[in-house]
Design a protein around this nucleic acid. Structure first.
Length: 421
RNA sequence: GGUGGGGUGGCCGAGUGGCUAAUGGCAGCAGACUGUAAAUCUGCCGGGCUCUGCCCUACGUAGGUUCGAAUCCUACCCCCACCA
């Protein structure tokens, strides 16, 4: 079995690692941890890189520890942030941590000999007294050392509070704690975590007399130069209440050709040879987007399950295939309705003639009436697949497909439905 | 505490009394082309309406001067630099 460093390197997932790591891995699997910020009640696809790294670590024979920052979330990590962060209440963080834990279970194995561990640093941080902390942890760092860190340096002009300045010490304290309590010798993180990770290694070295290692993952950006993981509606979340399975699937399906191979290596467990084969198919006929389909299906089924994925693929096929919506039967429309935003409309309201502008806003395809109006002027909207030319278009019973649905579309790939009754 | 600089739309950043819902860039949306891709070109991009126009809201906060203020005055809040 290859070691974690070799595995991740082969997949292009290593941005940097501490020098001693390779040597340490030659002596056997390693336990490692990665911290997750509890600032939201769900992970988003950007968080998936370290999650996958932990999953690989487990496959390489180590125990993965997912650390939810219930304690550190109260402080706020300055890394990669240009301004001071709002502080969250303890209750919010606790609820968020619980939600994130459930999602991690889709990627990590929580049973068996290398069962994943899920810990919340609030458990041990809450009990640490200020004097104790300053004496046992603070004593091992000079301010000079701390000021050298990019996370601090980059904030010297815009300002950084003492609270955030202290953050790296808390994270170092966490690492030292896990080193002792869980025999965690490795910390994984995004490349912006390098400073915090090395501070932890430093502390373990000085206080525990031990040796620990760090590995940081690259920051993902798209070929188009944008931050990875954003869609038109902001972050792409794992929580179906925030990002529907349909949108989740569509996000991956719409991946840029130039990014898709990298995304397969990062976000799926597919062997590199299979990815190479897939990419050859892709190159032969890019229009089929075999690679994107595979990527989208793989991720969607892991996160939302096989049943949901099947429905989403079916809905996508109906909406983007050459299916004549007018000929589609009610059962098919029901499938689509399960995946896109549906606006309920009374039958009497429809009979009276509903303003399309109001319906578009109600169905979420336009943020405001003005936006709906402008979109109509630009021929951006379609009803049942037919572009709307009239700005004052109204919906009536004659627009129904079957007995109760109207399909609304903005642009090529944004769909919503009206359900009557 | 002192001195100086600064707080403008999702972000960056112009604008120093009317021509400013506010130049420009980024991000976003749409149209054309295509493959539900990229690149490119074009249009849109605070909200509402009875929409070639009208009405709200907006330039840190609260007042004031003025026919008229993002632009001037006062107080307050916040940020930065240097000094103490």
């Amino acid at each position: 079995m290859s070691d974690i460093l070799a595995l991740l390197t082969a997949r292009g997932m290593v941005h940097d690692a501490t020098p001693g790591l390779a040597e340490r891995l030659s002596r056997g699997p390693i336990n490692g941890y990665c911290g997750f910020d509890p600032t939201a009640d769900s992970l988003h696809v950007g968080n998936l890189v370290p999650v996958m790294a932990l999953a690989w670590l487990q496959r390489a024979g180590g125990v993965p520890v997912a650390l939810v920052g219930g304690g550190t979330g109260l402080i706020g990590d300055p890394s990669g942030k240009r301004s001071e962060r709002p502080m969250l209440s303890a209750e919010t963080i606790e609820a968020n941590a619980a939600a994130i834990a459930r999602q991690l279970g889709q990627f990590l194995e929580f049973s068996g000999p290398t069962a994943a561990r899920l810990l919340n640093n609030a458990v041990w941080l809450a009990g640490v007294g200020l004097l104790e902390f300053l004496r046992d942890t603070g004593k091992h760092f000079t301010v000079n050392y701390m000021l050298q860190k990019d996370s601090v340096k980059s904030r010297m002009d815009s300002g950084i509070s003492y609270t955030e300045f202290s953050y790296m010490l808390i994270q170092a304290h966490d690492f030292a704690h896990l080193y002792r309590a869980e025999r965690c010798e490795l910390q994984l993180g995004g490349s912006d975590q390098w400073g915090n990770i090395t501070a932890g290694i430093e502390l373990i070295n000085r206080r525990e007399g031990g040796s620990a290692h760090g590995l940081v993952l690259p920051l993902l950006t798209t070929a188009a130069g944008a931050k990875f993981g954003k869609s038109e509606d902001g972050n792409v979340w794992l929580d179906p209440a925030r990002t529907t399975p349909y949108r989740f699937y569509q996000f991956w399906l719409n991946a840029d050709d130039r990014d898709v191979e990298r995304l397969l290596r990062f976000f799926t467990f597919q062997p590199l040879e299979e990815i190479a084969t897939l990419m050859a198919t892709q190159a032969a006929d890019p229009g089929q987007r075999a690679a994107q389909r595979r990527l989208a299906e793989d991720l969607t089924s892991r996160v939302h399950g096989a049943a949901a994925t099947g429905r989403v693929i079916e809905a996508s096929r109906i909406l983007f295939g050459n299916t004549d919506l007018g000929a589609a039967d009610e059962a098919v429309l029901e499938v689509v309705a399960g995946e896109v935003t549906v606006m309920a409309l009374g039958r009497a309201d429809l009979a009276a003639g509903a303003s399309l502008i109001d319906v578009l806003v109600g169905a979420g395809l336009a943020a405001s009436k003005g936006e709906a109006r402008r979109g109509l002027e630009q021929k951006a909207f379609a009803v049942n697949g037919v572009k709307v030319a009239a700005i004052d278009r109204r919906l009536g019973p004659e627009d129904l497909l079957g007995t109760r649905f109207v399909v609304l579309q903005k642009g090529k790939r944004n769909f919503a439905m009206v359900r009557v009754g």
